[in-house]
Design a protein around this nucleic acid. Structure first.
Lengths: 145, 145
DNA sequence: AAAATTAAAGACTATTTTGTCTTTAATTAA
DNA sequence: TTAATTAAAGACAAAATAGTCTTTAATTTT
């Protein structure tokens, strides 16, 4: 479905949302350990998500690290996909037609459309904060055992 | 969703199902032109789908080409995904957890599961022949204008 | 002001995916 | 049986993705 980069972005963001705040920033070492991802690669992804404070924020120096504002935590999960440039996945033709539409539908268009609508609904409805709370509760996980 | 290879595989297979038969084989040139894909790359993909006559069949020489048996045409679309080794996509964790399950669910597991079930249903239910017939009727297309 | 700590930046490498091109093998028609 | 036609095989090349490592900049603590 998504690229490895986006998978790490989703998990890292949820971890930072769950554990961090403006007062308590999280270091890259802790993040990559918590989600089970390569540290340097994850660093690069987080730097990218930090550009223009799209989704996450950061400060350098001692006691620095990554965190999210309350406003950012209340964004839908889709915001992470958009920041990673993978939100087009949610509207892409399943057979790869450059222009797949009602006028020019691929053979799976009409049935796959319904599935895409549900995916859009899922990523639009769920907020980062909601999912982060589920992690906190111990109901769900962001690292494989 | 799927790799370019699999997108081409889906479209090429539907074209061959629609236009070809044991009596009328289709050349690689015609296929790649009809679906708008790079010819040599498509050739490699079709060769792969021909291995062990998984989905499509072929013969070399004059009046040779690609075709599908009646039996193959009646396979579900999922057979193409399986042949391309991309059917695992239909069961993969959306956040990239190696082991995402009811016991160890990712934060999107329970809701994404429903979407996956529908995707599985779609690819399992639709047969290659059914979709090919829709192309023949002019209802749907496998090439972008 | 100096040392320590942290992310930012960017060069670099490795792997996978996508794609091309040439040679070979199979088959058929003349 | 020779020439023509087609896919098969496989070596290459290009581009995208994934990942590492080193240096720099920002910030804080001492």
């Amino acid at each position: 479905m998504f690229s490895k980069s986006t998978e790490y972005a989703l998990r890292a963001t949820l971890y930072i949302a769950q554990k961090g705040s403006e007062e308590k920033k999280i270091g890259i070492g802790e993040v990559s350990k918590a989600i089970g991802s390569p540290q340097s690669f994850t660093a690069k992804i987080l730097q990218f998500l930090t550009k223009d404070n799209k989704v996450i924020s950061s400060v350098s120096g001692p006691h620095g690290g990554f965190y999210m504002t309350v406003k950012a935590k209340n964004l839908p999960v889709r915001a992470i996909l958009e920041a990673m440039g993978e939100d087009e996945m949610l509207d892409k033709c399943v057979m790869g037609l450059a222009k797949c539409s009602e006028k020019n539908p691929c053979p799976l268009h009409s049935k796959y459309k319904i599935i895409k609508e549900q995916m859009n609904g899922l990523f639009e409805t769920e907020t980062i904060l909601q999912l982060a709370n589920n992690i906190k509760n111990g109901d769900v996980f962001i690292k494989s055992k």
